[in-house]
Design a protein around this nucleic acid. Structure first.
Lengths: 195, 195, 195, 195
DNA sequence: TATGAATGAGAATTCATTCAT
DNA sequence: TATGAATGAATTCTCATTCAT
């Protein structure tokens, strides 16, 4: 165990190990022992910090979602104009995916089918995400920067784009410059719905 | 066993039952017995037609993918102009999702993490899908109907939109008119990348 | 189905097929379907002639045991002197093993552990075999041709020799002239216990 | 769990339980749970020590074979004269069978038909055993203590005698003094092949 | 607090046997 | 009589979780 591990709590250590293994094998094919080995601790220790495998996943998702959401909100606020916000959002999303490849591949999983008990939670988060996007889009409409599109539809579209762009980045190792790509996506969206 | 079941082969019957249960519970949480019950047959009978649970899923995916792909290709060919093609594609996608809700929720699963052995297959299909979309977009570029965008990026975007639109349709039961939505999406895309 | 099969009853046909497969795979690893295929008939047909897999084996063993026993007795009676009887017995045993390789490898199985239900039967047959051998040996003693050895021990020895000689013959394909070998075995035994 | 069990490793405990149940029921009719119950442990625990049912058997056989072989070799070396070696071998064999009844009834099973995968192993061990016996007999010939018999045939005979003598001892509970019986068998063999 | 040996509920799969045709 | 599709009891093995140390 490195010095770094000592400072980071065990809890943190376990979560990071779990993210690695979950992203490699998927939730159902990950064994608690593998996580323990990855973390360099004993199997039983995980249960001192997390009640169950499912709860471990849930906590990872919860925290990651918050982290992601917070980063996106932070970035967006650095600009006033809607077009810039979009560009910055896409850029930030790219950045997040590239910097947190393992986490990303868990965060954008189709949670519904990982665990039945997670469904409700997943639906809620999904709804939350959609709500944020709709508010964001509504803001653009209110500002007169974009046309009065169906915010629901637009949220799904925007969410779909962001939610699928990670696959080539993380899985295929697509080498693309995040600024260029963000610029292109922004162009397409703004041309598509801009005033 | 109903009359309908007699006409449909057992194989078909089992696949349909499996689609229902898989879509309800997810692959890993589906027990072979549940499929058997859903099909109104004995557990052992499934194994007369499919070598294993995994193979049953694989066959469902393979067939569904073909069906989906074939339908999309068919529809697209009914028109010459790229814009119409886009609209028809989106419309057909909506139709497919609405008419095959259970199947859709399996087909757009993140196969990677359902079963390790399925990964290779999943990557291949994903690549295939992307290739088709890129060819389709390239055609639009060649026709001069759209700007010379990065086909890879655009394929990912288009795939992302289609691949996420099913969620509100199938899961939330979003009541949206497919023609209206298709028109809107087409508008956005064509504004975004049209010449 | 050949002409020969038509004359031989189905019952016979099934038993012969079963002997082949049993001897190849062992009782527990033989599937009823394999027997059916070997016999060129349907799986269900076996059950028209035999109540169960176990009974099929039992009948094979019963019949084979009788056949074997009868042959040995027949041969033995063709001679008066004990030494000749021994030689002829060993010769006949060799002949039986060489001519009925598949059957032999079933007949000399350690029945006890093939099927629990077969135990009692196996013990009984074993006892019968031993009794015959002891009578045979006693006769030699009474005739004054051999020394008054412990008939039980001698029966076990003789049975052990006969019961193990089949292995190299059937499994390894040991090429040995039955007359020579019989002569040698007889010599050893007669030297060993002769007067 | 008794005190004795604490000292003996779990591995040992499981093997002993397995020997008991295997010898009672035969390999195919033994359920892992029965072994666990016999050992007084949980079903899953067996798998902490043995990868599979087959491997458990294999290890038992391997170890027992070694133990048996070692004992026989040890005993034989305590004497120089061939006749004594034979007597001691037979005695030691009797002793082994009487002291390890359960193990014996497994060790002299017809492994071939217990499990297909075990065949190769069984053939190899059988060949090994035969080779040892042939060497042993050859030694007697070279010493001029016995006549130049066919060592292969003689090995089969000797192996057959030893390999069948356990049945009455273990199964029937034949009460025979090992010294007396060994003496008699030795007499027979030495008369049979001695110079 | 940390551990990993022990556990047993649970699930996929096999195959002898049945029975409608 | 012959068949083979259908069945489900039975069994191996897995792995999240517990708990004595």
């Amino acid at each position: 165990m490195g010095l770094e591990d000592l400072k980071k709590g065990k809890r943190e250590l376990i979560m990071e190990a779990a993210i690695k293994v979950f992203s490699r094998k998927g939730y159902n094919y990950t064994k608690m022992e593998e996580i323990a080995i990855e973390a360099g601790i004993g199997k039983g220790t995980i249960y001192e910090y997390f009640a169950s495998k499912l709860q471990l996943l849930q906590e990872i998702l919860e925290r990651s979602f918050q982290l992601y959401h917070q980063k996106m909100v932070e970035e967006i606020q650095s600009s006033i104009c809607f077009k810039d916000k979009i560009r910055i959002l896409v850029e930030a999303h790219f950045k997040f995916c590239q910097e947190n490849k393992e986490l990303t591949s868990i965060l954008f999983w189709n949670i519904d089918y990982i665990d039945e008990e997670l469904r409700a939670w997943g639906y809620q988060k999904q709804a939350e995400k959609e709500r944020h996007l709709r508010e964001f889009i509504q803001m653009g409409i209110d500002n007169g920067e974009i046309r009065p599109v169906d915010t629901k539809l637009m949220a799904v579209i925007l969410g779909g784009i962001l939610g699928s762009i990670w696959v080539p980045l993380v899985i295929e190792g697509w080498e693309v410059d995040k600024n260029t790509a963000a610029e292109q996506i922004t162009q397409i969206i703004m041309n598509g719905i801009g005033n």
